[in-house]
Protein backbone atom coordinates (compact mmCIF):
# COMPACT_ATOMS: atom_id res chain seq x y z
CA UNK A 1 0.00 0.00 0.00
CA UNK A 2 2.47 2.59 -1.20
CA UNK A 3 -0.07 5.40 -1.35
CA UNK A 4 -0.50 5.06 2.41
CA UNK A 5 3.13 5.86 3.05
CA UNK A 6 2.67 9.15 1.23
CA UNK A 7 -0.27 10.19 3.39
CA UNK A 8 0.23 13.45 5.21
CA UNK A 9 -0.83 13.96 8.81
CA UNK A 10 -4.00 15.88 7.91
CA UNK A 11 -5.20 13.10 5.63
CA UNK A 12 -4.51 10.53 8.32
CA UNK A 13 -6.48 12.54 10.89
CA UNK A 14 -9.44 12.97 8.53
CA UNK A 15 -9.41 9.24 7.71
CA UNK A 16 -9.32 8.35 11.42
CA UNK A 17 -12.20 10.74 12.09
CA UNK A 18 -14.35 9.27 9.30
CA UNK A 19 -13.55 5.75 10.44
CA UNK A 20 -14.13 6.36 14.15
CA UNK A 21 -17.76 5.12 14.14
CA UNK A 22 -16.72 2.04 12.19
CA UNK A 23 -13.94 1.36 14.69
CA UNK A 24 -16.48 1.63 17.53
CA UNK A 25 -18.77 -0.71 15.62
CA UNK A 26 -16.24 -3.24 14.33
CA UNK A 27 -14.40 -3.87 17.58
CA UNK A 28 -17.53 -5.15 19.42
CA UNK A 29 -19.01 -6.98 16.39
CA UNK A 30 -15.59 -8.47 15.58
CA UNK A 31 -15.32 -9.41 19.25
CA UNK A 32 -18.61 -11.30 19.01
CA UNK A 33 -17.28 -13.18 15.97
CA UNK A 34 -14.13 -14.06 17.96
CA UNK A 35 -16.25 -15.38 20.82
CA UNK A 36 -18.37 -17.44 18.41
CA UNK A 37 -15.44 -19.06 16.59
CA UNK A 38 -13.57 -19.76 19.84
CA UNK A 39 -16.70 -21.24 21.42
CA UNK A 40 -17.03 -23.52 18.38
CA UNK A 41 -13.65 -24.97 19.33
CA UNK A 42 -11.28 -23.06 17.04
CA UNK A 43 -8.16 -21.23 18.16
CA UNK A 44 -7.14 -17.61 17.81
CA UNK A 45 -5.28 -18.30 14.54
CA UNK A 46 -8.50 -19.38 12.85
CA UNK A 47 -10.15 -16.16 14.05
CA UNK A 48 -7.21 -14.11 12.79
CA UNK A 49 -7.06 -15.79 9.36
CA UNK A 50 -10.80 -15.55 8.81
CA UNK A 51 -11.03 -11.87 9.70
CA UNK A 52 -7.89 -11.09 7.74
CA UNK A 53 -8.85 -12.96 4.54
CA UNK A 54 -12.66 -13.21 4.49
CA UNK A 55 -13.52 -9.87 6.14
CA UNK A 56 -17.31 -10.03 6.06
CA UNK A 57 -19.53 -9.71 9.14
CA UNK A 58 -22.55 -11.82 8.31
CA UNK A 59 -20.45 -14.09 6.06
CA UNK A 60 -18.11 -14.94 8.93
CA UNK A 61 -20.91 -15.54 11.44
CA UNK A 62 -22.35 -17.99 8.92
CA UNK A 63 -18.91 -19.53 8.30
CA UNK A 64 -18.66 -20.42 12.01
CA UNK A 65 -21.77 -22.57 11.83
CA UNK A 66 -20.74 -24.13 8.49
CA UNK A 67 -17.27 -25.02 9.82
CA UNK A 68 -18.65 -26.36 13.09
CA UNK A 69 -21.27 -28.50 11.34
CA UNK A 70 -18.87 -29.77 8.66
CA UNK A 71 -20.63 -28.34 5.58
CA UNK A 72 -19.48 -29.39 2.10
CA UNK A 73 -17.36 -27.08 -0.08
CA UNK A 74 -20.29 -26.76 -2.47
CA UNK A 75 -22.67 -25.62 0.30
CA UNK A 76 -20.06 -23.21 1.62
CA UNK A 77 -19.60 -21.58 -1.78
CA UNK A 78 -23.36 -21.24 -2.41
CA UNK A 79 -24.24 -19.97 1.08
CA UNK A 80 -21.35 -17.49 1.08
CA UNK A 81 -22.42 -16.20 -2.32
CA UNK A 82 -26.03 -15.79 -1.20
CA UNK A 83 -25.20 -13.96 2.02
CA UNK A 84 -22.79 -11.63 0.19
CA UNK A 85 -24.86 -11.12 -2.94
CA UNK A 86 -25.77 -7.56 -1.91
CA UNK A 87 -22.14 -6.75 -2.71
CA UNK A 88 -22.80 -7.39 -6.39
CA UNK A 89 -24.02 -3.78 -6.59
CA UNK A 90 -21.70 -1.85 -4.27
CA UNK A 91 -18.80 -1.52 -6.69
CA UNK A 92 -21.00 0.22 -9.27
CA UNK A 93 -20.62 3.50 -7.39
CA UNK A 94 -16.87 3.21 -6.97
CA UNK A 95 -15.63 2.16 -10.42
CA UNK A 96 -14.63 5.75 -11.24
CA UNK A 97 -13.26 6.62 -7.78
CA UNK A 98 -11.07 3.49 -7.63
CA UNK A 99 -9.58 4.06 -11.11
CA UNK A 100 -6.68 5.91 -9.45
CA UNK A 101 -5.34 2.71 -7.90
CA UNK A 102 -2.96 0.26 -9.55
CA UNK A 103 -2.49 -3.14 -7.97
CA UNK A 104 -3.83 -1.72 -4.68
CA UNK A 105 -7.26 -1.74 -6.26
CA UNK A 106 -7.45 -5.45 -5.45
CA UNK A 107 -7.22 -4.60 -1.77
CA UNK A 108 -9.70 -1.72 -2.09
CA UNK A 109 -12.24 -4.09 -3.68
CA UNK A 110 -11.52 -6.86 -1.17
CA UNK A 111 -12.13 -4.50 1.75
CA UNK A 112 -15.42 -3.06 0.48
CA UNK A 113 -17.75 -3.93 3.37
CA UNK A 114 -21.15 -2.28 4.00
CA UNK A 115 -19.62 0.27 6.36
CA UNK A 116 -16.61 1.07 4.20
CA UNK A 117 -18.91 1.45 1.19
CA UNK A 118 -21.03 3.91 3.17
CA UNK A 119 -18.01 6.05 4.07
CA UNK A 120 -16.60 5.96 0.52
CA UNK A 121 -19.86 7.05 -1.10
CA UNK A 122 -20.60 9.69 1.53
CA UNK A 123 -20.40 13.05 -0.26
CA UNK A 124 -17.63 15.05 1.36
CA UNK A 125 -15.29 17.91 0.75
CA UNK A 126 -11.85 16.61 -0.21
CA UNK A 127 -10.06 19.98 -0.10
CA UNK A 128 -6.79 19.71 1.80
CA UNK A 129 -7.04 15.93 1.76
CA UNK A 130 -5.18 13.44 -0.42
CA UNK A 131 -8.26 11.55 -1.61
CA UNK A 132 -6.40 8.48 -2.85
CA UNK A 133 -4.53 8.01 0.43
CA UNK A 134 -7.68 8.89 2.41
CA UNK A 135 -9.73 6.12 0.80
CA UNK A 136 -6.92 3.58 1.23
CA UNK A 137 -6.46 4.57 4.88
CA UNK A 138 -10.18 4.26 5.64
CA UNK A 139 -10.12 0.75 4.13
CA UNK A 140 -7.09 -0.32 6.16
CA UNK A 141 -8.31 1.24 9.43
CA UNK A 142 -11.73 -0.46 9.18
CA UNK A 143 -10.12 -3.81 8.35
CA UNK A 144 -7.67 -3.45 11.25
CA UNK A 145 -10.52 -2.70 13.68
CA UNK A 146 -12.40 -5.83 12.54
CA UNK A 147 -9.30 -8.04 12.88
CA UNK A 148 -8.47 -6.55 16.29
CA UNK A 149 -11.99 -7.14 17.61
CA UNK A 150 -12.01 -10.73 16.35
CA UNK A 151 -8.65 -11.64 17.84
CA UNK A 152 -9.56 -10.05 21.18
CA UNK A 153 -12.85 -11.96 21.22
CA UNK A 154 -11.09 -15.28 20.55
CA UNK A 155 -8.41 -14.59 23.18
CA UNK A 156 -10.82 -13.46 25.87
CA UNK A 157 -13.33 -16.26 25.42
CA UNK A 158 -13.29 -18.26 28.59
CA UNK A 159 -10.95 -15.85 30.38
CA UNK A 160 -13.32 -13.05 31.32
CA UNK A 161 -16.98 -12.30 30.93
CA UNK A 162 -17.27 -9.08 29.01
CA UNK A 163 -20.06 -7.82 26.86
CA UNK A 164 -19.70 -4.47 25.08
CA UNK A 165 -23.33 -3.44 25.56
CA UNK A 166 -24.81 -1.17 22.96
CA UNK A 167 -21.57 0.10 21.39
CA UNK A 168 -22.54 -1.36 18.01
CA UNK A 169 -25.20 1.34 17.83
CA UNK A 170 -22.30 3.45 16.49
CA UNK A 171 -22.81 1.79 13.10
CA UNK A 172 -26.53 2.57 13.05
CA UNK A 173 -25.69 6.16 13.99
CA UNK A 174 -23.08 6.27 11.20
CA UNK A 175 -25.69 5.24 8.64
CA UNK A 176 -28.17 7.84 9.96
CA UNK A 177 -25.54 10.58 9.68
CA UNK A 178 -24.69 9.50 6.13
CA UNK A 179 -28.35 9.50 5.10
CA UNK A 180 -28.75 13.05 6.48
CA UNK A 181 -25.66 14.24 4.59
CA UNK A 182 -26.79 12.57 1.38
CA UNK A 183 -30.25 14.05 1.85
CA UNK A 184 -28.67 17.49 1.89
CA UNK A 185 -26.54 16.90 -1.20
CA UNK A 186 -29.04 15.16 -3.53
CA UNK A 187 -31.74 17.40 -4.96
CA UNK A 188 -33.90 14.38 -5.82
CA UNK A 189 -35.37 12.52 -2.85
CA UNK A 190 -36.70 9.57 -4.87
CA UNK A 191 -33.71 7.24 -4.21
CA UNK A 192 -34.19 7.66 -0.44
CA UNK A 193 -37.88 6.86 -0.62
CA UNK A 194 -37.22 3.95 -3.00
CA UNK A 195 -34.57 2.42 -0.73
CA UNK A 196 -36.49 2.92 2.51
CA UNK A 197 -39.77 1.55 1.18
CA UNK A 198 -38.03 -1.38 -0.54
CA UNK A 199 -36.29 -2.28 2.71
CA UNK A 200 -39.52 -2.00 4.70
CA UNK A 201 -41.43 -4.05 2.13
CA UNK A 202 -38.90 -6.91 2.24
CA UNK A 203 -38.72 -6.69 6.06
CA UNK A 204 -42.49 -6.90 6.52
CA UNK A 205 -43.60 -9.16 3.67
CA UNK A 206 -40.69 -11.31 2.49
CA UNK A 207 -37.90 -12.10 4.93
CA UNK A 208 -36.12 -9.69 7.22
CA UNK A 209 -32.88 -11.61 6.76
CA UNK A 210 -32.92 -10.72 3.04
CA UNK A 211 -33.49 -6.95 3.35
CA UNK A 212 -30.15 -6.05 1.87
CA UNK A 213 -30.28 -8.28 -1.21
CA UNK A 214 -33.95 -8.04 -2.17
CA UNK A 215 -34.21 -4.45 -0.95
CA UNK A 216 -31.28 -3.46 -3.18
CA UNK A 217 -32.75 -5.36 -6.16
CA UNK A 218 -36.11 -3.68 -5.67
CA UNK A 219 -34.40 -0.28 -5.34
CA UNK A 220 -32.54 -0.89 -8.62
CA UNK A 221 -35.83 -1.67 -10.38
CA UNK A 222 -37.57 1.43 -8.95
CA UNK A 223 -34.60 3.64 -9.87
CA UNK A 224 -34.70 2.36 -13.46
CA UNK A 225 -38.46 2.92 -13.72
CA UNK A 226 -38.25 6.48 -12.34
CA UNK A 227 -35.03 7.41 -14.15
CA UNK A 228 -36.56 10.31 -16.11
CA UNK A 229 -38.10 11.86 -13.00
CA UNK A 230 -34.97 11.41 -10.89
CA UNK A 231 -32.66 12.99 -13.45
CA UNK A 232 -35.14 15.82 -14.08
CA UNK A 233 -35.43 16.49 -10.31
CA UNK A 234 -31.70 16.48 -9.84
CA UNK A 235 -30.91 18.82 -12.72
CA UNK A 236 -33.56 21.39 -11.92
Amino acid sequence: MLSLLRADKDTLMVALKSSAPVIFGYIPTGFIFGVLIASAGYNVWAALCMSLFIYAGAGQYLAVSMLASGASFFDMAIMTFLINSKHLFYGLSLIEAYKVYGIQKLYMIFSLTDETYAIMTNPRDYSGVNKKAYMALVSVIDHAAWVTGSVLGAIFTGIIEFEPVGLDFAMTALFIVIVIEQFRSYKTKVPFIAGGLSGLFVCLFINKGQILLFGTLLTVIILIIFRKKIEADDNR
Binding site: Y90, L92, S93, L94, Q182, P191, L200, C203, G215
Partner: peptide
Protein backbone atom coordinates in the same frame (compact mmCIF):
# COMPACT_ATOMS: atom_id res chain seq x y z
CA UNK B 1 -23.75 4.21 -9.48
CA UNK B 2 -24.81 7.78 -8.77
CA UNK B 3 -28.28 7.22 -7.33
CA UNK B 4 -27.95 3.78 -5.71
CA UNK B 5 -25.93 4.80 -2.60
CA UNK B 6 -28.78 6.69 -0.86
CA UNK B 7 -31.15 3.85 -1.73
CA UNK B 8 -28.81 1.15 -0.43
CA UNK B 9 -28.01 3.07 2.75
CA UNK B 10 -31.74 3.56 3.45
CA UNK B 11 -32.10 -0.23 3.05
CA UNK B 12 -29.19 -0.82 5.43
CA UNK B 13 -30.92 1.49 7.94
CA UNK B 14 -34.09 -0.60 7.78
CA UNK B 15 -31.85 -3.66 8.30
Amino acid sequence: GKYLPPGIICCILVY
